[in-house]
Simulated scan of single mutants.
Amino acid sequence: MTRVWDVSVGDSTLVRRAREAVEEAAVAAGLNPARAGDAALTATELATNAVKYAGGGRIVAEVARDDWGNARALQILALDHGPGILDVDRAMADGYSTGGSLGSGLGACARACDHFEVDSVPGRGTLALARIAAPEHRGRFSGPAVTGGLHLPLGGHPESGDGLAFRSGSGHRTVMLADGLGHGAAAAEASDAAAGTVRRQAGEPPEALLRLLHAELRSTRGAAVAVVDIDESAHRLTFCGVGNVGARLHSNGRWETLLSQPGIVGAFGLRTPVPQRRAWNRGDMLVLHTDGLPSRWSPEGIEGMVTRDAALIAGRVFRDAGSAARPLRDDTAVAVALHTERFDGKRA
């Protein structure tokens, strides 16, 4: 199941709680003591910065997978709605500080992590993404991920009722986001069953996967599910969804909403899934989200982050869709898929 460590850091007394939560998450990710220490250092720095400069924020830790589903890493995402950082590059340099400290915080985090990125918009807040892997898997997490996301369970529950799964192979990338009916352990059971099935059967057409998932989820309460197949050699994206998982595609300079058909996968009868096919080219972006995200959310402007890490973009979507004062109304998950060739011509 998707285990999430989500800690709100409103004052300095909660920094220790964030560190302890990340230490627990590091064990779940299979990190050795040295790498777990790097994770604890990173969490402490990010939580301290959120309190000192933004008046508070949240630290979200979970286990992330590589594109082939064979390696795991600890993912830490720090979010705040503070004043932002005017010059991120300068803030990352050792010796820079606006708070009278030695000024090595963000730079120390970057050195401790396999991948570390900061996104900050003055007046809207700051995001920091850290990924830390076991020594044998560090190379698989050393750059920006082209597929990733985050999970936020309702009410601080340790398990998310939403589930993201993705896997690459045979020239195809399969991405699935499931929203288990309701929330809590039973919802997590449904989304986890969907994720496990997709990891085993990745590469099947989305409509075939949905039919398979409908059978596999019969013993659960069911889920809303969106499945995507990306075939970059054919410049094609195929989407198929059932239920209320949202999908926004940015391609050819504009955003398009991809609609799912009504229903619940694993419950009652399933209408024949109808796939939607779209072009998929360099610079395109797909955002999937469960219904915990406010309906008023607009993707406009997110396309400017196309060269950034997919999970960092997902964090921006979540952060900008709400406010520090707005509590979650349901389990929330956001997933982002990017073209493997970025605008700078480099291949991820």
Results as ranks from 00 to 15, higher is better:
A234E: 15
A337L: 01
R90D: 02
L14A: 15
A54G: 03
L259S: 15
R111D: 08
L258H: 03
G184F: 10
L270A: 08
G301V: 07
V227K: 04
A112K: 07
F343D: 15
N70K: 14
G283H: 02
A28P: 04
G30H: 10
P135G: 13
D94L: 03
Q261C: 04
E232T: 11
R124F: 14
G82K: 06
G304V: 10
G222C: 05
D320W: 05
A91M: 06
Q261M: 13
A190G: 02
G196Q: 11
A224I: 05
R282F: 00
G10C: 12
A267T: 14
L328S: 01
R111C: 11
G304Y: 02
A314T: 07
A324I: 10
T340L: 05
G55W: 07
R278K: 14
P122C: 13
V51D: 00
A61E: 06
F318C: 07
G57N: 09
A279W: 11
A47D: 01
E159S: 05
G139R: 08
S298P: 03
F166W: 12
A348H: 06
G84V: 09
A25V: 03
A133L: 11
L102K: 14
G283K: 02
D11W: 11
P33G: 06
L258A: 06
T2R: 08
T307A: 13
S104N: 14
L46M: 09
N49T: 10
L181T: 12
Q276Y: 01
E232K: 06
R138H: 12
G148I: 04
G139E: 13
L312G: 04
V228H: 01
I59F: 07
L41N: 00
T13Q: 09
